[in-house]
Design a protein around this nucleic acid. Structure first.
Lengths: 158, 158
DNA sequence: ATAATACCGTACTAAATTAGTACTGTTTAG
DNA sequence: CTAAACAGTACTAATTTAGTACGGTATTAT
């Protein structure tokens, strides 16, 4: 369904918490206040640390803290940290993996065009945006949305 | 990895074939010329037919044909036909599925913003674009690509 | 030093999704 | 009436993703 993994979803939640309180937070604390199992929180913080989005502090009174202003952390950066380069198709994501279907390959340039557009959309939203209160439902902005969009509106519960 | 399913990938391949030769093609024929297993081709053509993207003709000399000009079939329409409404997170895709993590929900409006941007990007590319010969590598357009992009360039094989 | 705290890293298990296969039914042309 | 070709369902297998467990290392306080 062209969606991100649950782990990435959780990562945004955890990072949002860190952005609200700039101090150092332990995994246990973050897990408790978010409702996400602690081992899972620890798991997602690892690649986030490796990517330099958060900083870790060991020992007593240690924990994790944001390593950069929320305004300077894009959703694209978060996704990239956890899932690797953003690519809608496997074709372009790694040079080693062949397509399997040869006739697919001639259009990898077109897929890359799509990838860039998606990437740009994701670069444009920062953690600060995500932490900010969100108006819901969203005001209709560009109206290029499909006809299907209106099928489900009204019963927003999720 | 925020990618579409293989079935959708195949669908684009099959539709590209149909767009090149406007006649009626059997599943067997499409399978042979694409290299995709016949049952799989049959499987993906079903929802495509339901969505009105292709038309099916039963009986002897039957088969499938494009139901619309390639210029009027967007990649978004193909993905939607096979995978349902385009949404990066589950949260907004269906009203019935709760998030599980409550703290996630306050930012569904922000996620929807992202969903719209992705959707727009996918609406913008048509089947005709995909069937067209693609320059590769693509000329750098907006340069908002992440630093990671350059890590893998050079050995394009996929 | 010693002990407690909290991250680090790897391996493993289980669940969910996705891909692929098989089979039976229905429609159309000759 | 027979053969061609789609329609629909059910099932199996493979892959991916989520979640758990455990032993190790660094830092701080006593």
């Amino acid at each position: 369904m062209i969606k991100i993994s649950k782990l990435t979803d959780y990562a945004v939640v955890v990072l949002t918490q860190l952005s609200r309180d700039h101090g150092v937070h332990t995994v246990a604390h973050l897990a408790e206040s978010s409702g996400i199992p602690a081992p899972t929180v620890a798991k997602l913080l690892k690649p986030l640390t490796a990517a330099g989005l958060v900083a870790s502090h060991r020992g007593t009174n240690g924990g994790y803290a944001l390593n950069r202003e929320p305004e300077r952390i894009s959703v694209a950066a978060i996704i990239t940290a956890l899932e690797g380069p953003i690519a809608v198709t496997e074709c372009v994501s790694d040079a080693d993996s062949l397509c399997g279907v040869e006739s697919l390959c001639p259009m990898r340039g077109n897929w890359e065009k799509i990838n860039r557009a998606v990437r740009a959309a994701l670069e444009d939203v920062t953690l600060a945006d995500m932490a900010a209160p969100s108006p819901w439902p969203l005001p209709p902005a560009t109206a290029q949305a499909t006809a299907r969009t209106e099928t489900r509106t009204g019963e927003s519960r999720g």
